[in-house]
Every structure is written in structure tokens, then in C-alpha cells.
Design a protein around this nucleic acid. Structure first.
Lengths: 90, 90
DNA sequence: CTGGATCCGTATTGATACTG
DNA sequence: CAGTATCAATACGGATCCAG
């Protein structure tokens, strides 16, 4: 729970499933999360090895986040959780 | 995550796996959780249908908590989470 | 564009003492 | 035994402004 619990981590991993996503795009995808929150979670998750931060460019700065194999393995658990939740209508 | 997330819910369900447990016993099993915390979680979890509260006696009052089928179904997810966590040494 | 810094209100948690 | 009441500490969350 310390690794994948909380309000946003699951959603972030979910949105990284198809490939790298940039910071602002991710913030928009999460609709409702402030940039501060997204940034805090991303830092935690990078430290935990769930994703990798990549600087694409300086001036203008561009950054993307990519899910790691470890992150992908946690996604498998999250998908089962999702299936369980839907089955019980929650 | 709203249902089984948080700091104590998983542990509470885990300890109810083998059968009904009484309030103080449960508090001791959770070592470190105050009675207030345990009680708050138990109330939530009863409202969510994860467990049932049963009054065994008045004077001296005795109460036990029993996991429901729904609670047991969530335990299956938690066990997979546990397996995943151990596999990755967390 | 990607954040950092700050402020501020709310939620969660914890320790302790108390009740029936 | 099974909680409740109270108070203090901390974490969390959002809004806003600023910077490279």
C-alpha cells in the first residue's frame, strides 16, 4: 500500500501504460490534480522505481515519464483490483 | 483503494481471516494502532460490508468482528498484493 | 513547459485519560 | 472489555505566484 496506494499513483501508472507521457499532459489526464500533487507523486514514484524521468529538451524544457518494468508489474495488481471493484460495483 | 487502502484495513482483514476476533485482541494484534484508530477503521469497514460486528455479551461487554464474504473476496486481492510485494522485497 | 516556494485550511493520526 | 472525549501533532491537498 505504501508503494501503490494513495489517491493518484494508480491513475498515473494507468496513464503511462501505453508509453511515455509529458508532465502537463499527465496533469491534464488526471483532471483535478494540481501540478504540485502530480509532481510530488512523480518524485515519490521515481524514487520507488515505478517510473523514470527523462529530460527531452532544455529551452523549452520538456520532460517525459516512462513506466518501468517494476511499475508495469504493479499495474498487473491494479488491474486485478479494478476487475474486483467492477465486479462488486464500487 | 477507498475500500481496502489505508494504513490498517488490510491488516485488520488479514487477522480476521481465521475467524472472529474480539476488539482488544485485534488491537493487540495490530501492535501500534491506538484503540481509537482501530475503532474508526472497524466502523468504516462495517459500513462498507467488509465485516460484521457482533455483541457477544453485556456485562462484561464482549464484541467480536467477523469477516464477510465480501471482505474475504477483497482478501484475495490483498494476498496477491502481498505476494507481489514479497517478490520485489518491499 | 516544468516545476519550486509559499500559504492556508482540512484530514488523519496519536497519546492520554475517562466511562459504563 | 469496548469503546469515547479531548487535545496536540502531523500529513495532505489546493491555490497562487514565481523562475529557468
Amino acid at each position: 500500500m505504501r508503494i501503490i496506494g494513495g489517491k493518484w499513483k494508480g491513475s498515473i501508472l494507468w496513464h503511462l501504460k501505453e508509453g511515455p507521457v509529458r508532465f502537463n499532459d499527465l496533469t491534464r489526464m488526471l483532471g483535478g490534480a494540481s501540478k504540485k500533487m502530480v509532481n510530488q507523486r512523480l518524485k515519490e514514484m521515481e524514487a520507488q522505481g515505478l517510473l523514470v524521468r527523462t529530460v527531452l529538451n532544455d529551452r523549452p524544457i520538456a520532460v517525459s515519464y516512462t513506466i518501468t518494468e517494476f511499475g508495469r508489474s504493479s499495474l498487473a495488481i491494479l488491474e486485478q483490483l479494478k476487475y474486483w471493484a467492477e465486479k462488486h460495483d464500487i
